[in-house]
Design a protein around this nucleic acid. Structure first.
Lengths: 158, 158
DNA sequence: ACAAACCTGACTAATTCTGTCAAGTATTTT
DNA sequence: AAAATACTTGACAGAATTAGTCAGGTTTGT
């Protein structure tokens, strides 16, 4: 029941992009530095977010990324779905699951995981970036301190 | 955002044990056959559930496992926590997380994952085995059809 | 033309997960 | 007491996934 770093980094990256909303594109290099994410890895993540229609890219000098919609219309759920795939606690509950549970209709657990999945989705979709921004507005958060080496494998990072 | 097979198999195994509530212990072999779970793997799972105080074992001939409490007092959340560890979307939100997020107080995402985690917990804790039993009561579910080979790595199983 | 910046896909090292195996220990029936 | 049944424990290996890197591209503003 963990999120992968893709989802976690994605939210942090989008926070920076959202912060810059209305001020033109934000360069990926800038995002990477502010949130201490590897540039190459961040490229992958932003690319996915682009394909999902969450951000738009501007190429060339002074290019970068910007939100494709207003912060109030972008939820955490949108981001998680784009980066971690559909919210489905069990493989057999994914949208295209033709090779579903071999117990089919008769499965004891299916409805349980389905119900819980809906609740998770609700929770994720109830949080917008507008809210996030407001929460940190005015705090003028300083950028995180650089650490020589991060703890292995995405641990110790939100 | 997937459950591991431990959690999924655990719920199914407990469903069988709960079904037998009040009728004495149910042999592990029986559980394994009814739910088509590898015996050796199931041993691991049941052992964990025992340590968590969810089931009790009876040794010797005609022994087996039985629920340590009434089905109405056992929730899906209890099982998931016992088998998958604490519900924490991010490593830094786990109970003993001394080596937490290096962004500490200032972390943009921390509160998001914390809130969502609470919602998940609520959802999991709102479902009791009593409810599960009632739902399948009288249906006299036949045991799942045996398949020669399961799809790889726990896929295709609820 | 140049440089800033995004685009793409291949690749590998680490980690986690799944499931097996083997050699126990405990309990009850006969 | 012996045998049968069942639980206990820990080590282990193969597969899948994840995290992150690298090495090239291509696009576009000046």
């Amino acid at each position: 029941m963990k999120l992968s770093t893709k989802g976690k980094y994605g939210v942090r990256a989008l926070f920076e992009i959202a912060r810059n909303y209305g001020k033109g594109p934000l360069a990926i290099k800038e995002i990477a530095e502010r949130q201490r994410i590897s540039l190459s890895y961040l490229e992958q993540i932003l690319h996915r977010l682009g394909k999902a229609g969450i951000i738009e890219s501007v190429r060339g000098p002074h290019g970068g990324y910007e939100l494709a919609r207003k912060p109030v219309e972008l939820t955490i759920g949108d981001v998680v779905r784009a980066l971690e795939g559909p919210i489905a606690l069990s493989h057999c509950l994914e949208p295209g699951a033709t090779d579903g549970c071999y117990q089919a209709e008769d499965c004891v657990a299916r409805m349980v995981w389905s119900k819980v999945g809906e609740k998770i989705e609700e929770a994720l979709d109830s949080i917008t970036f507008e809210q996030l921004l407001r929460q940190y507005h005015g705090k003028d958060r300083e950028h995180p301190v650089h650490r020589k080496k991060l703890v292995a494998a995405g641990k110790g990072v939100c």
